[in-house]
Structure formats: structure tokens, C-alpha cells
Amino acid sequence: MPARVAAHDAGPMITIESLSKSYGRFTAVDHVSFTAESGRVTGFLGPNGAGKSTTLRILTGLTPPSSGTALVDGVRFADLPNPGREVGVLLDASAQHAGRTGREILTVAAATMGLPRVQVDAMLERVGLSEDESCRRVRNYSLGMRQRLGIATALIGDPRVLVLDEPANGLDPAGIRWMRDLLRGYADQGGTVLLSSHLLHEIEVIADDLVVIGNGRIVAQGTKAELLAGAGTVVRARDRDGLTAALAAAGVEHTVTPDGAVLVQGEAAHVGELAQRAGVPLTELRSADSAGLEEMFLELTATSQREGAAA
């Protein structure tokens, strides 16, 4: 068995290195590398079919990679002696035997991990599944209830790492809020959270770090602050031509958005100074926030979907 690197000494909790997976000539995951640190929520963002789920399945040992490595705390997932106690995994809340009750599914998971039966009741209560609901068969569960059951299965072993694939799917707004608070608290206590989503705003409100994937490749990664800072500045002026001329003269990259605003690759303060020097009064000047990220994300979505023009 490979030597285990103690997490608190150094290094990220999850390390994905040059991971690739091909199906015939189709490359689902193409040299993907990223890390997830303890005490932080890492958002794994990408359009449907970008390779998120394949990456997470390789990480959890369900899919063999074509090349590259995926390690949790320095070891392969399959080499963890009792993985449920170290890594909580929820890949697909609907992937459960429809004929089992929710309580039974959780009991089986707890039994596999070697946990006492009493924890099942406590966990059901924690994820908000009532006594009555827990005794129903999963075929009668809504997607939201399945997500709660899946979260319960992931959390019951009190793991240090959570790997969740689209956990907010099917949750109502209150459920999404609940999930967000739960994951935030989990990370604040030193846990590592890696969660995927195809919705930018969902990830934006919870994640500390972002990894963006498109067509099997990582297209952007960094802290949320970095990625948002890189988004640039939105600026408007009645005299738009004067503004763009001033920006062009200063050699500042910029684009005019369809609604008439100018998206500038630069700090708001710098843009303001340039406008003042050129004598162009501004009507709006603000940080673009997620606008740049969203634009990149939309481009990704467009190139990875056939109806690209519509996106």
C-alpha cells in the first residue's frame, strides 16, 4: 500500500493529476488536473457532458481511468480501508434500489461502515427526513428526498471529505439553502468539500475555489476571488465612441456588449481615470463580478452543445 501523506502536514486533500478517460475515439476527460483543499468548498463547474461526473467516478474508483491519478489524502480511493468513514460520496441520488426504504438504505450503509444503528435515526433527523418518510420505499421519493437520503449516506460515516455530484438538483429553494449552510459549516470545521454543478450561480454562492471544465478540459481554476477579479469592469457612457477611443488609445482590451455597455479588462479605478482624462462622463462604472465568468461559461456551453447559436 502506498505511503499516506498526513493531511495536516501538507498538500491538498484531493489531488487529481493529468487524469484522462477515453471511450473509443471520444475523450470524456482530457488531462484534468486540480486539487481540493481542506477547510474549503471547491466547486467543480461545467456544462452537462463536460466530464464532471466521469472525473468524480474515477476519483471514487467506479471508473478506471485511461491515464493519470486521482488521490484522496495521498492514496487511491480504492486503497482506503473503510472509505465511507473517510470520504462521503453522493454521485447520483436516484441510483438506489427502488424497493428499499430510505431507512433501510441508510441502515445498510451504516452496517457496511460498522456504525451503530442509533446513528441512523440521528442522521435521518439531521437531513430532515421524517419517521414516516424514512419508512417509505425510495421509488415513492421525490428527487429532493433522494438527495437528502444521499447526503445522509455521505455524512453518516463522519468523513473528512465530501464528494457530491450535483447535490442541489431537485431541492427546493429552502433545501438549497439548507444544503449550502450544511456544506459551509462542514468546510469551516476543516472538512474538504468537492461539489459539482452545471449552474454557475449555485456554485458561486457556496464555493471558495472554482474549477471550470468544458469538453473534458479544465478551462479555468482558482479562488473565486481571483476568477471574479479577472472578470473586469462594466462601464457605460453616453459618448460610447469617445470612451472606446480612450480605452483603445490606452491599449486597454475591451468589448462592447449587446446592451451597449463596455466590458473592460481592467480595474474600475483605472478605467475611471482614463475616462476622466479623455473628458468622457460615465453613467455607470462597476466591477463585472461574475459577468465575465458567466460569459466564459456560456461560451463553453455553446461550444459543447449543438444548439450553440441559441446559447
Binding site: R4, A6, A7, H8, M13, S38, G39, R40, D73, P81, N82, R85, E86, G114, R160, A187, D188, Q189, G190, G191, T192
Partner: peptide, 10 residues
């Protein structure tokens, strides 16, 4: 945030 220490699991 300090990472949660690893607990030896049989």
C-alpha cells in the same frame, strides 16, 4: 482552517 486529523479506521 486546520484540516481535520485523520482517524485510523480499521
Amino acid at each position: 482552517t486546520p484540516a481535520r486529523p485523520r482517524v485510523e479506521v480499521p
